[in-house]
Every structure is written in structure tokens, then in C-alpha cells.
Write a protein that binds this DNA or RNA. Structure first.
Length: 809
DNA sequence: TCCGAATTAATTTTT
DNA sequence: TTAATTCGGA
């Protein structure tokens, strides 16, 4: 039976601890912690598991615990390892530690699993059997490498989908399975095994590691090398892992490895916030922690300091439906707060407009845009929001999506630097060899690759051979001058030139910059701007990094994720729910609460109850990010791939406690034009016949005045008043839809892409008759000659047709 | 070999 | 819907 947690509340020893801390220049306000928090901070030796509910102050507990270890227990900072989920979290923790522990706080090993493993691998490169200057491959690089393996093995990339193969390889590494150990029961998996083996050979030859390798190599090497294992298992006297519910098998192995001797392992997490099952994470890691470590103490942090009571009750109502979870109930002393708003929208554009309107209202009430965030289930939802926000002049930032470092020009420049750092990096070399064009075409490269394959050598050495032996005729010369450029760069690098300087040389010598400047298009300008930004970040790195080497910069860049992108300025934040983990905002709007969308069901909808539970946890994470105001939106009509799709409201909405909600709906999209043409909108539509604005719902005075009073009205959540939902008239002064705004026209609703005068009087929602398909509903109007329409015909589906073939019904 | 047109594929979630 | 890829013609 595990020992019970200490009860610091009734134990005055923490006061002594505080005095001692102060003596070492570490002052901890331990009396501001609640009892379980204090128990976690002061926990002495041995394993500890902390179940930390959302907003329960866990980051504070971790940092205090570390400070306490250093200040009170005299643990050398570099013997403490703290693993965080994101680089951003690591940065914040480092900062807090530096503040709490002025001497030495910076020496604590803080980072993500990946960053820490990269550090370990470089430090113990010899023992681990990797190159010290290895390059890290991101997913795209990995994909490119797999493609090459596929073509070398003469395999069909249709049959062996690179994406799928990558998934299998990554999964194997997650489970610490080598190519030899990989099961190959059938012909397909036998081939995959061969691909995996070849891939590993190629990666090794190229001196590169993929994301999965970083962890996998450490674990494998430690298990094969006694000295490394001894070193790693004794080096850290205290290990702390945050977000433990989202760790996978290798990560667990690694954690066990580094703490096996000292056994001072603290894991912190919340099984209700486990949202990475698809990535191999296993909630059992935290749920069964006491099985792996029978002497582990357990602390539960259940007091929430973040949200209102109503928000918390709502969030709890959703997760508590899950059957498989550690029982716990978050509670708060915070105020009741206003009701959670559930808003039905006309379609996804209307939803976005409501979001923009909400943001504006926030600003109107004197608050900052940084206080609000919009969450969605999938990235694809962001576009509509961006359009609406741009149309109403609300500045915003999207977290995730296309990373800065993924832009083509940025990748090009980085590829040059990667080759400078490691000439054997084949993927990078192939990327740049003809960028900008040097007349080294596919035919020549095929020959070079053939030489490389024959010798089992890197592309770079094959190129050297080809250049010297004149095997490629005229191309040999071009190749030679390309190699000379690389050589020049390498010389400069070895004489101490930093990344920024090298980057400038690349842009100069390759004419990359010049060709962009000559190309006088907005795209080229944007690219130049990105390159400048990249060089700026290199300069900053050279100024601030502890080890400002090229390798270190490249590593930083590839391990940087989209969630790490720092926000600056007064901007509204848009992100997926996954990216929102660990964050909080006073006002949160969660969009797309519909069946199929949230809970999300992909095309291959296998009815996995585990998946539903994860969706529910995802909703829980989303809701608990909100401090004061939570707005949940949904729409029965949403365009997916440009095709309209009907959905019913999310089951999660129906699981919320009615007493804590207020149900509303916006005005219909393009209400003004509907009002002008009263016959339209209700007939011939593919859906339930409900007018979006007259959806039956619980009584709501505000709604009635907004909606029944005038068909053009919409409601928007009032942020100024506690629970209010004020009708803001938005008919006349309404921000026009993006397309109209862009043209600067007055607000007459034509649909997107529709040029005035050419639409023949067609409009969205209009009922039309077609000779063959009968009556249908116009989905969109396309201008041009001849004008075209997208029309949904019940029983026939959605058709694109020339407008002149239909008549108003 | 390069450009533009035409086709078709794509959507979870990310270290 | 758009983005990416393939294909065909110069």
C-alpha cells in the first residue's frame, strides 16, 4: 500500500524549509500554496505522481519544487531534469527558475523530450554511436528520404504510401522496435520492414536523425552501452516530467532509465487532458504510475484558480461521461460567472462573423484582443475566421498551420546551411543543388544518385566523383562550381562564421536574393521579407544563445514547433484545441461544435469508443482554457471541401448543464438580402426547413428582440456585462462580408466571386428550377462568362451549372 | 526543360 | 475550396 501523502498543513516543517531557502538566496512563498500543492513541492525522496487538474497551479508547483530542491536540499541545478511538453513551456519554466533561483536556476536541464535527447546525444555522441554534428530531419525531410528509399528499392509509392510508411517507422521507433524486430507477418509488412532497414542505413550514412530517432537512439544506446547507461541513470538526482498523461512508450522507457538509480521521479499530469493517443501516448503511464512505482506518493491538485464555477461545471459535465478515468472533481472558489453561451449560427461564415463581432465587442468594452482566443478542432477551419477578422479589421495571429520554417524560401536557405554543417545530408543537398537553377537537371542527378547507391556513399561524395571524372559531360563543370561554392561556405564556417553571415553569403553567391528582387511580384517581396526575418533570427541567436554554433541553430529551428511561435502585439489568437493545451484566456470561443466536427469523425469513421473519449477530453481541455467567458458555436450548415454539409449540434452541447447555459442564435447569414427577397431561403433547401434565425429554443428575451424584432439582427455576446447577451444591431452598420469589403462596395449581398451585374439576380439560398433536376437551392454564385451556379438539388446532389439553364422557382 | 492547363487529392490533432 | 501534382505542348 502506498504511503499516504504528507500533510504539510498540519506540519510546521515547511516554515523551517522556507527559512532555509531564504538563506540560499531562494525565497519561496510557500504559505501561498494550498495543502496539496505544498505537499508536492516539499515531497522528499522517491517517486511522486501529481494529478493536476486544469488551472490548478501545476507549473507553479513544478518550479517551486525545483527551487526548493536547489535552495533547501542543496541539489546542484544541473542534476535536475525537467521535461516539458513544448519548447515554449520550457522557456517559461527556465525564466521562472532564473527568477526564483538567481544562482544556478539557469543550469537546470529544462526542455522537451526531443530537445533533451538531442542534447544527450550530442554530449555522449561517441557512446551513443551517432555523429556529433548530426542533422535533425523533420517530417518533410523524412518523407523525402523515404521517397528516395522507395525509388532505390524500385517500389511503387502508390502501394507503399510514403506517409503510411513513415507512420509505421515512427510507430516502431516509439515502441523501440528496430527493423530486425519489426513484425513482418505478411508480404506488405515484409516490404515495409525492408524499407525501414534501408531507411535506417540511409539515415546513418547521411548523418541524420529523425524526430523519433532522438528518443529511440538514447534508449537503445543506453541499453547497449553500460557506461552510457550508468552515466544517464546517475547523472540526474531529480527528474520531473510534466504532461505525463501524454507520454508514449519510449518516453516512459527513457524516464525510467534516467531515474532508475536515484528514483526521485516526479510526474505531473491529468488523465482528463490526455489528447495525444493518436501519437502513441498512453494514459496508462500516469494512471498506472503507482503500479510501476508501488512506493509512489500521490497528490491531487483539485482546486482550480482559473475559471468561473459555471465554466468548470460545464467542462466537468462533458469529461465526467468518460468511463475510464481517475475519479476527481475540480472545484473553485472563483465566482459563479456568466452563463456559457451556446450560439447557433447560419453557416461557418456566420460563425466567423460572430467571432469577429465578439472580438470587437471585447475591444469596445475596453479590453485587449490578447484576452481572447478562438479554438477549432482542425486547422482547415481557420481560414474562414481569418477572412472574417480581416474584413472587420481585427488583428489576429494563427498558431500552427504552416510554420514559418516550412516556407519554401526559408527551407531553401536552411538547406544550404545544413549542407554546410553536414555535407552528407542528402535530402538537403538534393533540395538545393538546382536552386536557383544551375542547369543540373533530373537526368544528371539520377546518374549521381546511381553512383551514390552503387558505392553506398552520400550524394555529396558521388557528386565529387562525377565532377572529377567528367562522367556527366558538360554538367560536370556545373557540378564542380556548385561544389566549389559549398567548399567556400564550409571554409568560412570552419573559420568561425556564424549562421547569419553564412546565410548572407549564400544569398549573395547564389543570386537567390537578386532573382527575387528582380521578380517584382508581391510574392517575391514576401519571400525576401521572410528571408530577412530568418537572418534576423539568426543574428538574435548569435547574440543570445549559449552555444551560438551553426549546428545548434539548425537544431533549434527544426525542434521549434508551431505552438512555440511567440505571440506579440495586441492580437486575437486562433489555434486548434491541441495547440491550446496549457494556455488560458479570459474569453474563449470554441467553434464548430457539431457532430462530425467536434467530436471529429474522419472519413474512415470507425466507431472507436476510445476515440470518442479522447474527443471529450479535447472538449474538456478547450473549455477549461477559459477564465471568464466561454462561447460555444455551432452551425447546421458547413462547407467542407467547398461542398455544403449538414450536421447536427454536437452531443457535447447536450451534455452541458442547462442551468449554466444560454442558448442563442445569430441572425441568418446575409439576412439583409433575405429580407429584401422574402420568398427565398425557406423552400427547396436541402435541410430541415428551419429558418436559421427562428430555431426553437429556450426563452431568451435578448434573442427575441434581436431576432424576432428584425430579421436582420444578430446577437453578440456582451463582455461588458456579466452574463449579458445584448442585441447589437448589425443590419445597417454590419461589416460587409469579405468579398464585398474587398471591393469596397456598399453592403448589398452578392455571393463571393460574384461580379456585380453578372449574377443575373441569383443569390445564395435562392430556389431555382432546372429542367432535369427540378427545384434546388443555390449554394454559391460564380461570376465570369458565362455565369455559373452551384446548386443543391434534393435527390441529385450538388451540381455546378451554367446559370442560364435554371430559372427562379 | 519549362510553363501553363488540367486533373485530382485532401482534413484531424504535432513532438 | 484550394493546393499539389501530372500532363501536354512549345
Amino acid at each position: 500500500m502506498p504511503p499516504r501523502p504528507p500533510r504539510p498543513g498540519s506540519d510546521p516543517s515547511w516554515q523551517a524549509a522556507e527559512r532555509a531557502c531564504t538563506l540560499r538566496g531562494v525565497t519561496l512563498a510557500l504559505d501561498t500554496l494550498n495543502a496539496p500543492q505544498r505537499a508536492a513541492v516539499l515531497h522528499a525522496d522517491g517517486p511522486l505522481v501529481v494529478f493536476a487538474g486544469a488551472g490548478s497551479g501545476k507549473t507553479r508547483v513544478i518550479t517551486y519544487r525545483i527551487a526548493h530542491l536547489i535552495g533547501e536540499r542543496g541539489v546542484p541545478p544541473w542534476r535536475i531534469l525537467a521535461v516539458t511538453f513544448t519548447n515554449k513551456a520550457a522557456g517559461e519554466m527556465r525564466e521562472r527558475l532564473a527568477h526564483l533561483v538567481p544562482q544556478g536556476g539557469r543550469d537546470v536541464w529544462v526542455g522537451t523530450f526531443h530537445a533533451i535527447c538531442a542534447r544527450i546525444l550530442r554530449k555522449y555522441a561517441d557512446l551513443a554511436g551517432v555523429r556529433k554534428d548530426f542533422t535533425i530531419y523533420d517530417d518533410a525531410d523524412q518523407r523525402a528520404m523515404i521517397n528516395r528509399v522507395l525509388s532505390d528499392l524500385k517500389l511503387d509509392d502508390k502501394r507503399y504510401d510514403p506517409k503510411k510508411v513513415a507512420g509505421l517507422i515512427n510507430r516502431a521507433k516509439q515502441e523501440v522496435i528496430s527493423p530486425e524486430q519489426m513484425p513482418s507477418n505478411d508480404a506488405y509488412h515484409e516490404v515495409v520492414q525492408r524499407i525501414y532497414a534501408t531507411y535506417e542505413d540511409r539515415m546513418r550514412a547521411a548523418g541524420t536523425l529523425d524526430f523519433g530517432d532522438l528518443l529511440y537512439r538514447v534508449v537503445v544506446a543506453a541499453e547497449q552501452s553500460k557506461p552510457l547507461r550508468d552515466e544517464l541513470s546517475t547523472r540526474f538526482t531529480n527528474v520531473m516530467v510534466d504532461e505525463f498523461q501524454d507520454t508514449n512508450h519510449v518516453q516512459l522507457r527513457l524516464v525510467k532509465l534516467v531515474s532508475e538509480v536515484t528514483r526521485n521521479l516526479t510526474v505531473v499530469g491529468d488523465d482528463d487532458q490526455a489528447i495525444y493517443r493518436w501519437r502513441g501516448a498512453d494514459r496508462r503511464n500516469i494512471l498506472d504510475f503507482q503500479k510501476s512505482f508501488p512506493d509512489a506518493q500521490l497528490v491531487k491538485l483539485e482546486q482550480n484558480y482559473r475559471s468561473t464555477k459555471r465554466i468548470l461545471r460545464s467542462a466537468h459535465a462533458v469529461v465526467s461521461r468518460n468511463v475510464d478515468r481517475e475519479p476527481k472533481t475540480l472545484w473553485t472558489d472563483n465566482e459563479e460567472g456568466g452563463p456559457v453561451l451556446v450560439v447557433k449560427c447560419g453557416d461557418e461564415r456566420d460563425e466567423a462573423r460572430l467571432a469577429a463581432e465578439t472580438a470587437k465587442e471585447l475591444v469596445r468594452s475596453g479590453r485587449s484582443l490578447t484576452e481572447m482566443a478562438i479554438f477549432y478542432r482542425i486547422h482547415a477551419q481557420s481560414r474562414v475566421f481569418e477572412e472574417a477578422l480581416r474584413a472587420s479589421n481585427v488583428s489576429y495571429q494563427v498558431i500552427g498551420g504552416v510554420r514559418f520554417y516550412d516556407r519554401a524560401e526559408v527551407k531553401d536557405l536552411l538547406a544550404y546551411l545544413r549542407v554546410v554543417s553536414n555535407v552528407d545530408d542528402d535530402v538537403s543537398l538534393l533540395r538545393i543543388v538546382n536552386v536557383p537553377t544551375r542547369g543540373i537537371g533530373k537526368t544528371s542527378l539520377d546518374k549521381v544518385m546511381e553512383i551514390a547507391a552503387r558505392h553506398g556513399a552520400s550524394i555529396w561524395s558521388a557528386m565529387n566523383e562525377a565532377a572529377q571524372t567528367n562522367a556527366l559531360g558538360a554538367t560536370s563543370k556545373k557540378l564542380a562550381s556548385f561544389l566549389a561554392l559549398l567548399e567556400k561556405l564550409r571554409v568560412r564556417a570552419s573559420s568561425g562564421e556564424g549562421p547569419a553571415g553564412l546565410a548572407r553569403v549564400v544569398l549573395e553567391e547564389t543570386n537567390y536574393e537578386k532573382s527575387l528582387k528582380d521578380d517584382d511580384t508581391p510574392e517575391a517581396d514576401a519571400r525576401l521579407e521572410n528571408l530577412r526575418e530568418l537572418i534576423g533570427s539568426m543574428e538574435e541567436f548569435e547574440q543570445e544563445a549559449e552555444t551560438p554554433t551553426l549546428t545548434a541553430f539548425l537544431e533549434l529551428v527544426t525542434l521549434q514547433t508551431s505552438a512555440d511561435e511567440a505571440g506579440s502585439g495586441d492580437k486575437l489568437t486562433l489555434m486548434t484545441v491541441h495547440a491550446a493545451k496549457g494556455l488560458e484566456f479570459p474569453v474563449v470561443l470554441v467553434a464548430g461544435l457539431e457532430e462530425q466536427m467536434f467530436p471529429y469523425r474522419g472519413l474512415d469513421a470507425d466507431d472507436d469508443p476510445e476515440e470518442l473519449e479522447e474527443e471529450r477530453r479535447l472538449a474538456y481541455v478547450a473549455f477549461t482554457r477559459a477564465r471568464e467567458k466561454l462561447v460555444l458555436t455551432w452551425t447546421p450548415l458547413r462547407r467542407v471541401f467547398g461542398q455544403p454539409r449538414m450536421n447536427s449540434r454536437s452531443r457535447f452541447l447536450d451534455e452541458l448543464p442547462k442551468a449554466d447555459l444560454r442558448e442563442l442564435s445569430t441572425g441568418t447569414p446575409r439576412a439583409a438580402s433575405f429580407a429584401d427577397r422574402p420568398s427565398a431561403g425557406s423552400s427547396g433547401s436541402g435541410y430541415d426547413g428551419d429558418r436559421p434565425w427562428s430555431h426553437p429554443q429556450q426563452g431568451n428575451a435578448a434573442r427575441s428582440s434581436a431576432v424576432r424584432g428584425r430579421a436582420t439582427g444578430t446577437a453578440s455576446p456582451s463582455l461588458a456585462s456579466g452574463d449579458g447577451f445584448r442585441a447589437s444591431s448589425y443590419g445597417g452598420e454590419r461589416p460587409p462580408p469579405a468579398s464585398t469589403a474587398a471591393r469596397g462596395g456598399s453592403y448589398v449581398d452578392h455571393s463571393e466571386g460574384d461580379v456585380a451585374g453578372e449574377d443575373g439576380g441569383f443569390y445564395i439560398g435562392m430556389a431555382v428550377t432546372h429542367a432535369k433536376y427540378g427545384v434546388g437551392k443555390v449554394q454559391s454564385v460564380h461570376g465570369g462568362l458565362p455565369p455559373k451556379l452551384t446548386v443543391a438539388f434534393p435527390g441529385w446532389g450538388v451540381k455546378q451549372l451554367v446559370a442560364s439553364y435554371v430559372q427562379p422557382a
